[in-house]
């Protein structure tokens, strides 16, 4: 039995979901949200090039620092905030256990 972590997700309709997710190698938040009907498209496939997996982190922790490419992408979205991240750049592992985030509205 593989280890599980908790994700606290607010979807685009404002509904809150507490989900237990198995720590699966090579899966990121965009892929989890896309494959579990959270309405995230992830159409660039995780290259950080489309921002369709834009999320707002609501936890106090930062979960790593976005690199310059991710920041530049976020700068180009009208509804990005200081707590914005791209879900495709955050891998699901035990470091993010308990992460709370809101899936941003499509700009």
């Amino acid at each position: 039995m593989s280890e599980k972590i908790k994700l606290k997700i607010t979807d685009r309709q404002g509904q809150k979901h507490d989900v237990d997710v198995e720590i699966d190698s090579n899966t990121n938040l965009m892929e989890f949200c896309r494959d579990n009907s959270f309405g995230v498209e992830g159409f660039c496939g995780g290259m950080g090039s489309c921002a369709s997996c834009h999320i707002h982190i609501e936890s106090s922790e930062h979960y790593g620092n976005p690199d310059d490419d991710e920041l530049a992408m976020l700068d180009d979205i009208s509804n990005s905030k200081t707590n914005s991240r791209l879900g495709c750049q955050i891998e699901i592992n035990k470091d993010i256990d308990g992460i709370k985030f809101e899936i941003a509205q499509e700009p």
Binding site: D69, L71, A72, D75, D76, S80
Partner: peptide, 8 residues
């Protein structure tokens, strides 16, 4: 006009 000083 750009929102930051980082450019993609």
């Amino acid at each position: 006009v750009h929102r930051s000083d980082r450019f993609r």
